[in-house]
Amino acid sequence: MIEFQDVTFVHQNGVKALDGVTLKIESGETVALVGENGAGKTTLVKHVTGLLKPASGRVLVDGQDTKATSTARLSRKVGVAFQNPDHQLFSESVEEEMSFALRNFGFPPEVVRNRVAWGLELFGLEEYRKSSPLVLSGGEKKRLTLACILAWDPDVVILDEPTVGQDSLQKERLAGTIKLLKSAEKTVVVVSHDIEFLWPIQPRVVVMKAGKVVGDGPAPRIMQDEALLASARVAQPQLVEFHRSLSSKPLEPFADALEARRWVEGAFRP
């Protein structure tokens, strides 16, 4: 469980990046963190693993105050995949890259071997086992960074803008991975602008604006709250907009195009 208790954080330049954030994420939840650039999403994420410490308030991970422990310890529980893979790939081979964290966390060699093999298979990277991570394409690099994190089996997985620069096939695969994590009862936090990507996942949505949490609830409720979305400069999913525009409609907006089609078939078929 992750808990933010009235957390405030001020950057060196005096900008208040977090302003009294109180937020509780239970284990097994899938949460989307949305808001415009500069709203404080990444700053919030960095507090979970103690990369940043609150100026006031507390951040608790499984009951432990992040101020009282180290990033290395917290990372064992919480895996964060940052936006830019080029900010972390450094090893001679893909295999080595995946082993890095596992060795840091002190896993025995045979476990390292097994986990690496598992990750390479899951993400379709086996053919690159011996290649340099730098020769991979953008999409492959992104998958590799995710594999690196899942390899140590953290309880919480945080993805920072996972869809940036990804084409639709890669996004589909990513959505599949998130479903897989969900079914494995992992806590998943996705920081993303990509509302169309988030909507079919139907996560709990936390909306941030100027360092504050301004909205928090299930996706259908938040995504139908137009005043909230407009003030936080968050786009509305197209299917929600479609639902809104219908004069007679079902209670809940459609989660995907197929669901919408089924309803239209029933309602409009002469």
């Binding site: 990369l51 990372s75 064992r76 895996g79 940052f82 830019n84 900010h87 890095f100 964290a101 840091n104």
Partner: peptide, 16 residues
Amino acid sequence: LDTIQIMDAQKSRGLE
């Protein structure tokens, strides 16, 4: 900024 982001990413992978 790059340096900070890289350090954050590697610390998140258990680098001390």
